[in-house]
């Protein structure tokens, strides 16, 4: 076989191989709707434990709720704040809030502030501690029962028995 033709065929093989490799890389690292880094998984594990304890209470609550039809809109939730030093403060909130923001307003002792964006409020300060990504290289992450939250506080629905965690996370 002529050398040139052989080189071109090798090139063609490399081309196909690279396409396959690219697709494998894509499958390994493709974007996921709920990204979980090691740190997040740790928190998720911690919070699953909390959530399990809660489920027991939950069942009890539900039975109570069945007895009391008026309690339809009343939700018992827990809001946890984990600051930069890892200290966790819990707030038990009984609320009829539809979204998390109202429940946060009702939580006694919890303060927060932020800036408004097209997705609702972007939380920047919680209990006096600031985490602005561009300034502090850290942010306030939201978890629902240990799962990474998909909504901002203005659109995160509040469900009876859920635990909402607000966690100070430093970017790597």
């Amino acid at each position: 076989m002529e050398k040139k033709t052989r080189n071109l065929l090798i090139g063609l093989g490399a081309f196909v191989a690279l396409i396959v490799i690219a697709l494998i890389v894509f499958n390994m690292y493709k974007p996921q709707s709920q990204p979980a880094t090691a740190a997040e998984t740790e928190i998720a594990a911690e919070e699953t434990a909390t959530a399990d304890e809660q489920t027991a209470e939950d069942v009890a609550d539900d039975e109570q709720a069945d007895d009391d039809q008026n309690a339809d809109d009343i939700k018992n939730i827990v809001i946890e704040v984990k600051d930069s030093e890892g200290n966790v403060t819990s707030y038990e909130v009984t609320t009829d809030a539809e979204f998390l923001r109202q429940a946060m307003d009702e939580a006694e002792g919890l303060t927060y502030d932020g800036s408004d964006s097209e997705y609702g409020m972007m939380v920047e300060v919680v209990n006096g501690e600031q985490a602005i990504y561009s300034e502090d290289n850290a942010y306030w992450a939201f978890y629902v029962n240990g799962e990474y939250g998909n909504y901002g506080i203005d659109s995160q629905p509040v469900t009876d028995g859920d635990t909402y965690s607000i966690v100070y996370e430093a970017a790597n």
């Binding site: 396409i19 690219a22 697709l23 890389v25 894509f26 493709k30 974007p31």
Partner: peptide
Amino acid sequence: WVAGIPYDV
């Protein structure tokens, strides 16, 4: 880059 791989292919 990874998110765009299918388009690169």
